[in-house]
Nucleic acid binder design. Structure first.
Lengths: 343, 343
DNA sequence: CCTGAAAATTAGCGCGCGTAAAGAAAAATC
DNA sequence: GATTTTTCTTTACGCGCGCTAATTTTCAGG
């Protein structure tokens, strides 16, 4: 880490007493050169701190070490958390993860995909916006780039999907709520952008009907990514209008539940399963903050690590398979029920 | 968006009936060619969907349109939120933001900076880890790349700093708490990594002393980025041991306060300023979730938009100034007190 | 129609590296 | 020690575009 500045691989090769192609070979795979040669290069590397020009490298390689991670809204702690783990896994595996957020906007998601294609990534993890996504844009992208979809499934898109088994999520919460009290109504947004919301509603209805119970779906208004506020306002409205058919509420996701809990607190309604509680509230996702709500939230948890690991594993075999699977694979990971104080 | 695939600018230029240098000129600045020529290129662009190879472009330009955004921990909603706004502003301004999280690790932060240097970014926004940062690495980086520090100041690093006026934050909360009840103690982590924490403690002590009041600083144990849990555990400990000198608590930041509120709820302590409340709790940051805590959190808010705008403005003038300012500038943005239910 | 500035063209170098082919050198095998 | 195999060197081309210098074309104003 001293001496003059190296300008290119040619100079660096000369300083290490080797030819450029040999040094180039080393950077593509350090094990591909003779151990003695490798030592010489690494010794020179210590002294001169040279790194191959990333643009020139990527221009000449058909595939880079880049891996794209695309999420619909990074300021949502759920996506921040899953992206965090995937990103760390990529780094461990020697890739260069590049993180993108669509900021909830169809247009931005499309632009991200267009820009990402140009980066010739080895593979991409993508959690699409869902209903708002530009299907044609995603389809085009997936034709060019090996893609693993996660969180939100879009039928037929990408080579694989890794997500949650929404039926398992709802099954566990509904069963638990029925077992320990009265059956829940289902609280959700009227027009959810995320397909998981629809799957959860369907699962709820089916599970209730199979148990011979009448499903009650409560839909509240609201658009965008401010789910907590939508949940809070919706809860106020539905409670004030007496629209809540039960004393047990199963929220479609934790962010809505956080808003619901806030509304209950504001109305002086005690939530929980104990004596003097007016309502029980449960939910899905194990949002990073659900541990700290008041009361803490009973929820069906994503296996964050398992989802991330499965994503990585899938993309690895996809890359090794040359970017295409024979058939699209779908992995659904079941939920883990977490009992806390809210239900 | 039809016809065959274009392989390079040469081909695209031929198809638009122009020469490559002219087309190149257009991509560098569409206004630099004659309007009629521009129309022809844009017409061809509609039909053929060509984009210059990003690697080749960046290799030959001394400066790219890349802008780095580096934060210490992206799964912290505070950083996710500020990064979100900065990223959107960059896109609006025609830059290509690239978002990095150090994941709380010194080594990763260093590696990010090394990789970022190679991308020849036009500029970088960086919120350093703070105490854990590798000062030498940051210093080296800032010599190579025009950098605007934000959130955490490190004296002398980067060409400019944009952050919060911590004195203003604490002044407003302390004054409010004193005015409407009794003076607060100050609740914080023992070894905060973020320099803002130290500035807030100093501000608290100074403000209390100037008001002729005795400052009480309550320090709790804990490492890492799980601030809510640290706050929760710390609150339990300090309440159980009777270590709380006052019935009013000012938390160093909202994430600690969220944990504190959780502990209070668990202990059946009512928080707020009304009748029957055992404690008042206030804090700083206006964390995205502080609106939805129970009770909602009285806090000193960052002007997220103002901070982001000032960051952008600073980086723009820095880029226009050729990457160097004569003297390092520091912009401190005051807080906006937000009264909610917790105090 | 002429004229001169503005814009486009042609031609060509350079960026830094991947990669291929052919021969030389080194290491491994017998 | 001779032969085979592996590794390295040399030479050379290609990637796609930025940029420049010299030339030609375009177009507006007189």
């Amino acid at each position: 880490m001293s001496e003059q500045k190296i300008r290119n691989m040619e100079e660096f090769a000369a300083l290490s007493g080797l030819s450029r192609p040999t040094v180039s070979k080393y950077f593509n795979d350090p094990a591909s050169v003779r151990p003695k040669t490798r030592e010489r290069i690494e010794a020179a590397l210590e002294r001169y701190d040279f790194r191959p020009n990333i643009f020139a490298v990527n221009q000449n390689r058909s595939l880079t070490k880049n891996v794209g991670i695309v999420v619909p809204y990074l300021a949502d702690p759920f996506f921040a958390e899953i992206a965090r783990i995937i990103e760390l896994r990529c780094i461990e595996a020697g890739f260069s993860p590049i993180l993108y957020s669509a900021h909830g906007e169809r247009k931005l998601e499309k632009e991200i995909l267009e820009g990402l294609t140009a980066l010739k990534p080895a593979g991409v993890f993508m959690a699409p916006l869902g209903r708002l996504s530009d299907r044609a844009a995603i389809e085009r992208f997936c034709r060019d780039v090996p893609t693993v979809l996660f969180d939100s499934n879009i039928e037929g898109m990408g080579e694989a999907f890794v997500g949650s088994d929404n039926f398992s999520f709802v099954k566990q919460t509904v069963d638990y709520l029925c077992r320990t009290g009265s059956p829940p109504c289902f609280f959700e947004m009227r027009n959810p952008a995320n397909p998981n919301a629809n799957k959860r509603r369907h699962a709820y209805i089916r599970i209730m009907e199979e148990a011979g119970l009448e499903p009650h779906v409560v839909k509240v208004e609201g658009e965008g990514w401010g789910f907590e506020e939508i949940g809070r306002q919706g809860a106020h409205d539905v409670i004030a209008s007496g629209g809540l058919a039960t004393d047990t509420v199963l929220c479609s996701n934790d962010r809505l539940a956080i808003g619901f809990l806030a509304a209950c607190y504001e109305r002086g309604l005690r939530v929980g399963r104990g004596e003097g509680c007016a309502l029980r509230i449960a939910s899905h996702d194990d949002h990073p903050f659900s541990r700290f709500t008041c009361p803490s939230l009973t929820t069906a948890a994503h296996e964050y690590e398992a989802v991330a690991d499965k994503c990585m594993e899938t993309l690895f075999s996809l890359i090794e398979a040359g970017g295409r699977f024979g058939a699209r694979t779908e992995t659904l990971i079941p939920a883990r029920l977490i009992l806390r104080a809210s239900a």
